[in-house]
Computed example of a mutant assay.
Amino acid sequence: MLMRYVMSSLRISLLMMIVLGLGYNLLVTGFAQTVMPERANGSLILNDQAEVVGSRLIGQENRDQAFFQNRVSSIEYNGASGSPNYAPSNPDMLKRTSDAVKEWHTQNPDVQIGSLPLDLITNSGSGLDPHISPAAAEVQIPRISKLTGISPSKLKLLVNKHTEGRELGFLGEPAVNVLELNLELKSLMPE
């Protein structure tokens, strides 16, 4: 009698592993591939040679000052998501923020520190945010114009073109995807 219950439990467990562990995942993946294949495949961005250069969903480190810079990343854009969640009074947070302000001012001496948007010196919750605010993009225009020779007005138009509105018209804030902006900026640069 006990053996019958054990075997019955094992069969149900095996069936549930197949249905929920394999079947459900195949169903959801198939649905996603049918309804939104671009998103299901990681929202990848391709260059002119059809090579993957990144994702619309994950920020990338870019140290070239001729391009727009992302938010500060507490994880150095290594692909793992997370943030130390320091309180504003934490000495490590104060030092990191102070260092970010000094570095920013060194790279952008024409911009007043008081006009520096906070998203350029603070990190997002995931540490991989691909977006910055339109103000954070605009404040970088003088440096980029000086380094690339592209006029500030042309760069402003580029930022406006890549500014995404609020989700559903009322959720979140307008944002600029840095990778997409930099890819178009690169196409405007002289060889």
Rank of each mutant, 00 (worst) to 15 (best):
T163G: 00
S126Q: 05
D110Q: 14
G54F: 07
G79N: 12
N62V: 04
Y77Q: 01
E61C: 00
N160D: 14
S74M: 04
P174F: 01
S43K: 08
F31W: 15
A66K: 12
T148A: 09
M36L: 07
N108K: 10
G59D: 10
V72L: 14
S133H: 05
G79S: 10
L168Q: 05
Y5E: 10
E38Y: 03
A87P: 08
A40E: 12
N90Y: 09
E38C: 01
R11Q: 12
L94E: 15
S126F: 00
M1W: 12
E138G: 00
N62K: 04
M93S: 06
K146M: 08
R96D: 11
L46M: 09
E76H: 07
P134Q: 03
V111R: 10
M93Q: 09
S55K: 09
V6H: 03
I141D: 00
S151R: 11
D119M: 02
E167L: 11
N62W: 03
V159M: 04
E76Y: 03
D129P: 04
E51F: 01
T163E: 00
L158N: 04
P142C: 12
M7E: 02
M1F: 08
L147Q: 10
E38H: 07
E184V: 14
S145N: 02
G127S: 01
P84Y: 06
M36R: 08
N182Y: 09
S187I: 05
